[in-house]
């Protein structure tokens, strides 16, 4: 699976719905801090140009305030894309997934249930 496909599956975003109005970037409070802006995330993911985004500081400058999601007239959700790319960059290669079958061996009776649910939610993307 290539990076673009991974980002799309993890974020659940349909980048084709974007009509390039730029309202996400017009609403973004971190705009001046970012090298790549919300609308660029959408258009670069659409083109499959993911690596520069993963390397950029921009993914950590996003406040996840969801202003872009709230304002987008087409329901594209740029913040979810940024989050997915951040996850891609943060997770070490190879061990970024957990399957339901792997859980029993990892189980610790001391572990709170909440932790298992959280881990599964985070790593199953």
């Amino acid at each position: 699976m290539d990076l673009k496909e991974q980002v799309l599956i993890m974020s659940g975003v349909d980048v084709r719905k974007c009509m390039a109005c730029g309202k996400c970037s017009g609403a973004c409070p971190s705009y001046n801090e970012m090298e790549y802006h919300p609308h660029q995330f959408v258009s670069m993911v659409k083109k499959g140009n993911i690596e520069p985004l993963m390397k950029s500081e921009s993914v950590y400058k996003c406040l996840t305030c969801y202003a872009c999601i709230e304002r987008c007239p087409r329901g594209v959700e740029p913040a979810k894309l940024i989050e997915a790319i951040r996850l891609l960059a943060v997770r070490p290669q190879g061990s970024n997934h957990i399957k339901a079958d792997d859980i029993p061996s990892l189980l610790d009776p001391e572990l709170p249930q909440q932790a298992i649910v959280t881990a599964f939610r985070k790593y199953s993307k």
């Binding site: 017009g26 705009y31 802006h37 202003a67």
Partner: peptide, 28 residues
């Protein structure tokens, strides 16, 4: 200006700050 307005902020002095992206120049 190609770009949508993200927010209009009414200021205390009675003006309105229009925050928008200028897509062709890559600025906010």
């Amino acid at each position: 200006i190609k770009g949508m307005v993200g927010k209009v902020l009414p200021e205390p002095d009675g003006t309105l700050t229009v925050r928008a992206s200028d897509l062709l120049n890559g600025t906010q």
